[in-house]
């Protein structure tokens, strides 16, 4: 009985849906507010993300004639589910007392969960492409194509950058990589280049400025999501914002030592501060740059990011051997 309750608690409250939902809204608000202040604006009040979500959920849900209704309804749910599942393996905190050996308080953990998480996190990009393809609008078809092209540009350096900490710590479990850093050094100090590449890759994954190419509104309206409205659009937005949270949590675990224990301040608070720092970096980046073209991104991804990531991995392996 107790096992059931704690499993349900983990799935729906912490660190599952409820916690992620609150984080998604909070991160979205911080992001919008910081970007607004940097641009000389005021920014939205704290409840704006929630209000936006509720408003979209209540709106009429229409699809153009000829769109694949079943797929268009399923795709946002599938991508949201993928992101939520990925979140189960990413510990946002250590257990208050005790806990399994070496692991954080992820809802679940096993050797190799990093690979599963990376796979799950790439599902929204593919779902986006399909959504664009199946919703019969020229803008969404172009947007879908672009999101697939973008996926090929950032994903390889992103994966290589994230495998750095795994190779160095000899484990492919996120919880274990995080725990190991609290005993040794944070990976960001060992592999600053890897951290940078992972952050850039994350910006591409989240389709944020300057890599907001698939949804460039002055070019292709809203890209793959042009024809979506109401609940489906709300779910797409929620997916994106949860993906932001999960992606940032992943970076904190792999590079910033997760939540180190032994301090007086609560571990979750430390973790939150690290996560918000990465979020701030993303917000600042979104204010600093103009949107790139897809060909410019592809050339950046393959000519600059991928070779750098490869060099980083080779260095790590060389260190490991030596």
């Amino acid at each position: 009985m107790n096992d059931w309750l704690s499993a349900l608690f983990a799935l729906f409250i912490f660190p599952g849906f409820g916690f992620l939902f609150v984080c998604a809204l909070a991160f979205q608000w911080i992001d919008r507010r910081v970007a607004a202040r940097l641009q000389g604006r005021i920014g939205p009040p704290w409840f704006q993300p929630l209000a936006d979500f509720i408003k979209l959920m209540a709106k009429e849900d229409i699809l153009p004639t000829g769109a694949h209704e079943w797929a268009c309804a399923a795709l946002p749910i599938v991508s949201l589910a993928a992101v939520l599942t990925a979140a189960l393996y990413i510990p946002p905190s250590f257990p208050p007392i005790g806990g399994e050996e070496g692991g954080g308080w992820a809802a679940s953990a096993f050797e190799g969960d990093l690979i599963v998480v990376l796979f799950l996190l790439s599902i929204p990009a593919l779902a986006c492409f399909l959504a664009g393809w199946l919703s019969v609008s020229v803008y969404s078809i172009i947007g879908g194509n672009r999101s697939l092209l973008q996926y090929f540009s950032y994903e390889v350096p992103f994966l290589m950058a994230l495998s750095g900490p795994a190779i160095l710590s000899g484990s492919w479990s996120i919880s274990r990589i995080a725990a190991q850093q609290s005993q040794t050094a944070w990976m960001v100090f060992v592999q600053p280049l890897g951290f940078l590449l992972a952050t850039v890759g994350l910006i591409g994954k989240l389709k944020r400025v300057p890599f907001d190419i698939p949804k460039a509104k002055s070019e292709i309206v809203a890209g793959p999501l042009t024809e979506f409205s109401g609940r489906k659009l709300a779910l797409w937005h929620l997916t994106l914002h949860m993906q932001t949270v999960v992606g940032i949590f992943l970076l904190v675990n792999l590079f910033l030592g997760g939540c180190s224990i032994g301090l007086v301040v609560p571990a979750t608070l430390v973790f939150g501060v690290k996560a918000v720092l990465i979020l701030l970096a993303l917000s600042v980046a979104s204010v600093l740059y103009a949107r790139l073209r897809i060909d410019q991104l592809a050339s950046l991804g393959w000519r600059v990011l991928a070779p750098l990531a490869l060099a980083q991995i080779l260095i790590i392996i060389w260190i490991g051997v030596a």
Partner: peptide, 16 residues
């Protein structure tokens, strides 16, 4: 122009 090439910051500053 800045808004159209996705550079929102210059848009905001110029219009301010």
């Amino acid at each position: 122009l800045a808004e159209d090439i996705g550079f929102t910051t210059i848009f905001m500053y110029a219009w301010r």
